[in-house]
Design a protein around this nucleic acid. Structure first.
Length: 288
DNA sequence: CCACAGGACGGCT
DNA sequence: AGCCGTCCTGTG
């Protein structure tokens, strides 16, 4: 495959750190020169800010412009979203200002499912390591500039892995969850193509919850960070619980609210864009 | 060496 | 229905 380049003017709603360090992805790494390099599908891409330009360069299966527009959610009007969210209250206004360059990536559904099953009870460096090892072992090799990269394995490729294989790669107790989920998806007992066509968030979530290792939080992350792009979910992890409690309830850390109560509040307060609101709040509190 | 951090799940009430 | 111990590994 041939190297391609695409350049566009830098916009307010595009910041490398905000996009890649807000917890939505695990295969992007900062380089010496401040650019980021990542693998998604069969693409290897470098993204660099140079003065007033964003430069995308790498190996792409399809046209790089189309690939980038889709993956970086460039067709969505984040300026409008930020304006709307900022009107809601001061907390949101502050967090939107803080994470002004956040965009929600359109990541491959299959990869996102497995990645977030691995994320359960886990920290980001370890999650990244596990996904890297899975890709190195089961994914297709991609060579660019004499460097070797590995795509995330396809459903079929990962279905070759046994529970023991997965355990050796450091998944811990998540090995059986990944194994069973892969089997359900490979045999189409859970059909991802059908799921992708489904429109109702409620129905999508019900289906995702059938997968071993997918609970309420992981399901919400999959819906928000993949091509499913349901913006009307509100993933509640310990950090979000802390932020919401701190901002709106000020209960002692021990007696913080239940997930359902936080979801309800988010739904009432933030409406159908609450998924994006969650990202601004999360990034803000996590970094600051 | 032990304590802790991080969601799903199953067993219990 | 809700609560709680357990699952595994890296870090301090």
């Amino acid at each position: 495959m041939q190297e391609q380049t695409y350049k566009m003017n830098l916009i307010e709603t595009f910041n490398l750190e905000h996009i890649f360090e807000c917890g939505q992805c695990f295969r992007w790494n900062k380089q010496q020169d401040g650019s980021y390099l990542g693998v998604f599908k069969n693409n290897v891409l470098n993204v660099k800010i140079d003065g007033n330009e964003i430069i995308f360069k790498g190996i792409c299966e399809k046209d790089i412009k189309k690939t980038v527009e889709e993956y970086f959610d460039l067709k969505r009007d984040y300026e409008k979203i930020k304006k709307d969210l900022s009107k809601i209250d001061e907390h949101l206004k502050t967090s939107v200002k803080y994470g002004s360059g956040i965009r929600l990536l359109n990541q491959d559904l299959w990869e996102t499912i497995i990645s977030f099953i691995i994320s359960a009870n886990n920290n980001i460096p370890r999650i990244k390591g596990i996904i890297e090892r899975i890709s190195n072992k089961y994914g297709k090799k991609i060579i660019w500039n004499d460097n070797t990269y590995y795509a995330f394995p396809t459903i079929e490729e990962l279905s070759k892995a046994s529970v023991e294989d997965l355990r050796k790669l450091g998944l811990g107790f998540r090995d059986t969850r990944v194994y069973e989920t892969t089997k359900l998806i490979f045999t189409k007992q859970v059909d991802l193509d059908k799921l992708s066509k489904e429109k109702e968030s409620k129905t999508i979530k019900e289906t995702l919850l059938k997968l071993p290792g997918v609970g309420p939080k992981v399901a919400d992350c999959i819906m928000l960070f993949s091509t499913l792009k349901c913006l009307d979910v509100f993933p509640v992890d310990v950090w979000v619980r802390r932020v919401m409690n701190e901002l709106y309830f000020k209960l002692p850390d021990e007696k913080s609210l239940k997930r359902e109560q936080i979801e309800k509040l988010a739904s009432e307060k933030y409406g159908n864009l609450r998924g994006i609101a969650q990202q601004y709040l999360f990034y803000w509190k996590r970094e600051a």
